[in-house]
């Protein structure tokens, strides 16, 4: 018969196998801490490389000039910066209204039966490899025609759509029921309630989701590689007619050449891109915390 023999009146220090168990536990905790430190360190190393090398390439000319002819040294990435802005801007104009409307449909109108396939489609879109999205748009808009800024923006909008829809939906779900009920009790019609009560109180979340989606889209390369990768040095507004220069593809092509001066420009471009993305992320997070607080969560 195995009865524990513990002297309960002994000092309260480890007895039996506890010392060994503590060692196991401390080892596990050490690994958990170590893994976290490693992840942060990897981020730190990547960012540090981009900052150190990128800052070297950075100059006013780099930000404002066109690349030098023939891809030689000197010159800047101004067209790519403007082009990325343009592409992401157009993509946002397409994705944001649709994303918000889908979210409103899910929270305000759809019954469970209707909501299921829509949620599923959003989840699947979100999980789709972005290269597949790129190839889809290639097949839809480019094959037999030519690459275009619009095709690229359309591909980016497909990446953004589920992100915006999901974060909007989350925020709409936080809008207190009482607000809607109060509006209903006053005999306010549904569309007025949605437009004047529900959407404004979720505005913070919608903006956050959009900013995060913009940050994501700005760095996407795979959807652009089939749609807007063979570009010149000019950003034109002829979105349907010509491909648009952009930073991700610029970095990609520069990284594939063995030319060291190209690497320097790629670091510089990476610095610009990463700064924008990290700032957008931090900003979105701060905004989210604030709007969550405002909704009392």
């Amino acid at each position: 018969m195995s009865t524990t023999e513990v002297d309960f009146t002994a000092p309260l220090v480890a007895t039996g196998n506890l010392r060994r168990r503590h060692r196991v536990s401390r080892a596990a905790e050490g690994l958990a801490l170590g893994s976290s430190v490693a992840a942060v360190a990897v981020l730190g190393i990547i960012v540090a490389y981009v900052v150190v090398h990128g800052a070297g390439a950075l100059s006013l000319d780099f930000l404002t000039k066109e690349p030098s002819p023939g891809g030689g040294p000197g010159g800047g990435i101004a067209p790519a910066i403007v082009g990325t802005g343009l592409l992401v801007g157009v993509a946002t104009v397409i994705a944001m209204p649709i994303g918000v409307l889908v979210a409103v449909y899910l929270t305000e109108f759809a019954g469970p039966a209707a909501a299921r396939p829509i949620r599923l489609a959003l989840d699947l879109l979100n999980g789709l490899p972005s290269i597949v999205v790129g190839l889809f748009v290639f097949g839809l808009l480019v094959v037999g025609k030519h690459q275009s800024g619009f095709a690229a923006a359309f591909a980016l909008s497909i990446i953004m759509l589920p992100l915006i829809a999901r974060s909007t939906q989350e925020m709409l779900g936080l809008v207190p029921r009482q607000l809607r009920e109060a509006a209903d009790a006053l005999g306010v019609s549904r569309w007025r309630t949605v437009l004047t009560v529900v959407l404004p109180s979720a505005a913070g979340g919608i903006v956050t989701g959009t900013v995060l989606a913009v940050a994501r889209a700005a760095g996407e390369t795979a959807p652009l590689i089939f749609t807007s990768s063979i570009f010149g040095n000019r950003v034109t507004l002829d979105l349907l007619g010509t491909p648009i220069p952009n930073i991700p593809v610029q970095i990609f092509t520069l990284s594939e050449t063995p030319d060291p001066s190209g690497y320097e420009r790629a670091w510089g471009a990476a610095f610009v891109l990463l700064s924008f993305i990290l700032v957008a992320n931090i900003g979105a997070r701060a905004l989210l915390t604030r709007s969550r607080k405002k909704m009392g969560r």
Partner: peptide, 20 residues
Amino acid sequence: LYHGHDVYGPGVDRVEVRRR
């Protein structure tokens, strides 16, 4: 005090406390 030992004293093992 638990059997005369300070439960919050220095060197006290919390896990051991809960085991008893």
